[in-house]
């Protein structure tokens, strides 16, 4: 097959994914009374927010975005978030894991490997209840994880915020059933059918701004559990560990305590696309310590209300 034909095919595929995502965003935003878009500062939520802006143009985004802040963020990501909400003129709500800890809603793990990742579920559910959000858009993709591969585009959560993978509503065609009772809510995943490569193709096509840490840079890291973790902040050296400088980039952006960097010299989006196309390890397998702890880590977290 010629590369021109292959390019046309990929382009048509991305067109169709884009139309599908915009349609889902419009539908959920119109059917639900008080939606919110969950924004982590990562590439998927940046693409999701970009699509949401296109969905309502030339009108403004008719709902706010919410960042669940673990307090263990990369500084570059917070700077990026604040710049983006200003440039794109969107309303930002911040839900703080630190506040949940201070209020005694959650108890923080201790020790050098403690992560706040799992605590986010409580902060997220509390914030949804506090603001009365009845639908939350997320950037989750089915190709990320085997539990996500099972989830509907419009996914029901009970009064405790739980996902029951055995009792999902059927979802024939593209007709979304948004009916809920008070206290229940919905999660909507417009990027369900996207892969990591689709996300990067969209970023290239629309020049979506991202935090610098997605591109190659030099960073002081430590090798732990097969991952390169940035030293500083929540990651403290254990006895026997040695910090060293490495040329890396991040393939995903999450809580700094459990998000690993990958060795990379990819200096721009074009390089990243080539790298992702050739990758032999999934993005979560390569960069998320918390997902490799157990076989059903993601399913267990999702049942509790995780993203």
């Amino acid at each position: 097959m010629s590369t021109t034909m292959e390019h046309a095919q990929l382009s048509a595929h991305l067109d169709a994914l884009t139309d599908e995502a915009i349609t889902i965003i419009r539908e959920v935003a119109t059917e639900c009374e008080n939606p919110v878009l969950l924004f982590s500062g990562g590439k998927d939520s940046a693409v999701l927010l970009h699509l949401a802006l296109l969905a309502f143009a030339p009108a403004r985004l008719p709902f706010p975005v919410m960042h669940v802040d673990t307090g263990h963020n990369f500084a570059e990501v917070i700077d990026y978030r604040d710049q983006l909400v200003q440039d794109w003129n969107v309303r930002l709500v911040v839900a703080s894991v630190q506040e949940s800890i201070d209020k005694g809603r959650v108890v923080e793990d201790t020790g050098p490997r403690a992560s706040r990742n799992r605590l986010q579920s409580v902060t997220l559910l509390d914030a949804l209840a506090e603001h009365g959000f009845d639908a939350a858009f997320g950037g989750g993709r089915r190709d990320e994880d085997k539990a996500r591969a099972k989830e509907r585009i419009l996914s029901f959560r009970d009064r405790q915020g739980r996902w029951d993978p055995r009792q999902q509503r059927p979802e024939p065609w593209d007709i979304l059933n948004p009916r809920i009772r008070k206290g229940e809510h919905l999660r909507a995943f417009p990027l369900s059918n996207w892969t990591e490569l689709d996300i990067w193709r969209y970023i290239e096509r629309h020049a979506v701004p991202l935090p610098d840490i997605y591109l190659s840079h030099t960073r002081t890291v430590v090798q732990r559990d097969g991952m390169l973790l940035a030293v500083g902040g929540p990651v403290v050296l254990e006895p026997g560990e040695t910090a060293f400088d490495a040329v890396v980039r991040y393939r995903t952006v999450g809580d700094a305590s459990c998000t690993g960097a990958v060795k990379s010299t990819a200096a721009d989006v074009h390089d990243v696309l080539a790298e992702v196309a050739a990758a032999r390890i999934t993005e979560r397998g390569a960069t998320r310590a918390d997902d490799t702890f157990s076989e059903s880590a993601m399913e267990d977290r999702k049942r509790e209300g995780y993203f």
Partner: peptide
């Protein structure tokens, strides 16, 4: 991919 599927060796929901 679901725990219940792996334990029983069946498919419960669409992947």
């Amino acid at each position: 991919g679901l725990r219940a599927e792996r334990e029983q060796g069946i498919t419960i929901d669409v992947a």
